[in-house]
Design a binder for these strands. Sequence first.
DNA 1: AGGCATACTTGCCACATAGGCATTTTTGCC
DNA 2: GGCAAAAATGCCTATGTGGCAAGTATGCCT
Lengths: 202, 202
Amino acid sequence: MEVVILMAGTQGLRERKKAATRQAVHDAAMRLTIERGIDNVTIDEITEAAGISRRSFSNYFTGKEDALLYADGQQMRALLAAIHDRPAGESAWTAMRAVVATMADRDEHTVSEWAIRTRLALTHPGLLAVQLGNHAALERDLAAVVAERDGVGPVRAHVLATAFLASVRIAMRLWVQDGQPGRPGEVIERVLDEMERPFDGH
Amino acid sequence: MEVVILMAGTQGLRERKKAATRQAVHDAAMRLTIERGIDNVTIDEITEAAGISRRSFSNYFTGKEDALLYADGQQMRALLAAIHDRPAGESAWTAMRAVVATMADRDEHTVSEWAIRTRLALTHPGLLAVQLGNHAALERDLAAVVAERDGVGPVRAHVLATAFLASVRIAMRLWVQDGQPGRPGEVIERVLDEMERPFDGH
DNA sequence: AGGCATACTTGCCACATAGGCATTTTTGCC
DNA sequence: GGCAAAAATGCCTATGTGGCAAGTATGCCT
């Protein structure tokens, strides 16, 4: 394999290389998909661009969709960790709101790729399905964090986690549908406000 | 094709036959999946059991998952129609609650197959993904119904539709995870109550 | 440094799936 | 019965999925 920049970290070389390969495959998938559209990209082309064998692709991802949504998972896991690390006094809902507000407007590149993935999911049902499946898995973890923080049961925790994640999804969809006006964090907060209002308007 | 019972309805023979074939394929897929597990069933086997050609399967469904979740879509569309037909005075949230409460405890067979599909989705990520994708599509329609009824904007409508559908999903998951104790409608109502409580416990 | 165990990569392979296209069959209607 | 539209089927190619075994890199120990 080509020499790549490997950030020295807490892990050994093997782990770092795996992470780098994963990222490289994801990047290749994103680039090719942006260039030609998702349906005009084969796994073979992605692996060629990323410099690994066709067979190895299957060791990293189960399909194109997974590869494209890799960054999504990374982002979500970062969100989770940030929520976990909020001051202990805060309620889960406050913690989640606080994190997403600051996080959604991070660096330009992350946000723009996020927008691209959201737009892709909007027109490609298969990609949306995989993304929602991933989010369902993450919901468990978020619910666990919520349960621990608020000291509530699993049902309440899942409801909170679901309401929060669904709000973020709705907000991102709106944001890209309207042509990404302003900061995405703004839209997320607006949707979260909407979610907090009583559902039954009498 | 074998002679099948075709309910006389508002449509012509052609439409009824298509519907019957769809149902037959779905039934075959369910039966075989229950017998052997989803991974040990091929499309070829489903088509053979349903009495159609392999090629025709693709004219009806895009894959095994779609075929299995056909009844899910039917059920959801019935839910939508029932919500639409509620008295005009009711708020959307009240209408949705009213419909789901009566509908979830309908006939034994429908509920039991619903449980089976939910359990399948619980262990088979691919099926869950397709289901969530379908629900996302249905969310648009539900949001439209909500918007019309409550006279609210698209954002509010989507929030309400999402909160409702997510509650139903959470409830069904809980219900099957706990071994289907009592009526599913009970669990749904409990989760909806939970969803109505303020998210931020101060 | 050398050597061993483990984990990762790859090639080969058989099988399942997706869907275009042309042909045949069925249906709706006169 | 006869005709046009719609649906079903067969054929075919491209693509995806994942088991298995052989080769290669890495981590670790001495």
